[in-house]
Amino acid sequence: MTELFIRLIRRPQGLVGVALLALIAVTCLFGPALAPYAPEKIDFLGRFRSPGWHNWLGADEFGRDILSRLMVGARSTVPMALIATLAGSAVGAIVGVGSAYLGGRIDEAIMRTNDAVMAIPGLLMALLLVSTLGNGAGNAVIAIAIAFAPGMARVTRSVALNIRNQDYVKAAIARGEGATWIIFREMLPNVMAPIVIESTIRVSFAVMLFATLSFLGVGAQPPASEWGLMVADARQYMYQAPWGLIAPSAAIALTAIAFNLLGDGLRDALNPRDER
């Protein structure tokens, strides 16, 4: 584990990814305590104040400090994306490994159906689900998790097919272990590495998807300072106060980049030979 970490931060992309993520984690944990102002503090004299000494990143249409809103808003953005990805990956991984274990025609049927489900674009699937379940951050997380599962199932299954033919799996079948034991104790632990890499990269999609749902008005609801919601609010005033738009956009982009870099760094660290 330590060796992997050292290999990860030895490459520039891994190092930048880890550093950015550390910053994001600190913001999520201590954001409200570190923020210079209360995120809801209204200051009518400071409406649209440009970035400077008073408000480092400027103020919005109510004179609320944008930096403080960003720091507090990290909590309503990043953990949501993490939870959605974890749930989606878990479901996808179990379906993928299960399908590979069952093999043959059942595997074929499951994967064809899985591919068919993937014909519905992620955002469309999430929108349909949220419109049925009702608007809100929690339902948006469920929707993203469901939208992610088929993609993870496909990735996992392709790795698990190789594992299925390994001797230790054959041995487990020969000594009469049950399907649940083989899937969870023999196969799943051995497909973890690719799943972790794929999930890490997917967190960045989840961050973007969650912000998009909030931007469209069906995810996190006001007065939460979720980043996508902040962009949606700032759009009305983008000519007077472009900083209101740029700050949360940059936060979303940095988070997405951080997870992308970490995912790529992990892939390099786990497969040192592949130089791409």
Binding site: F215, V231, S249
Partner: peptide
């Protein structure tokens, strides 16, 4: 390329 895939459409569009 990294920047392109790390910005959601609504951000790129608005910017």
């Amino acid at each position: 390329a990294y920047l392109g895939v790390s910005l959601p459409e609504f951000v790129t569009a608005t910017l």
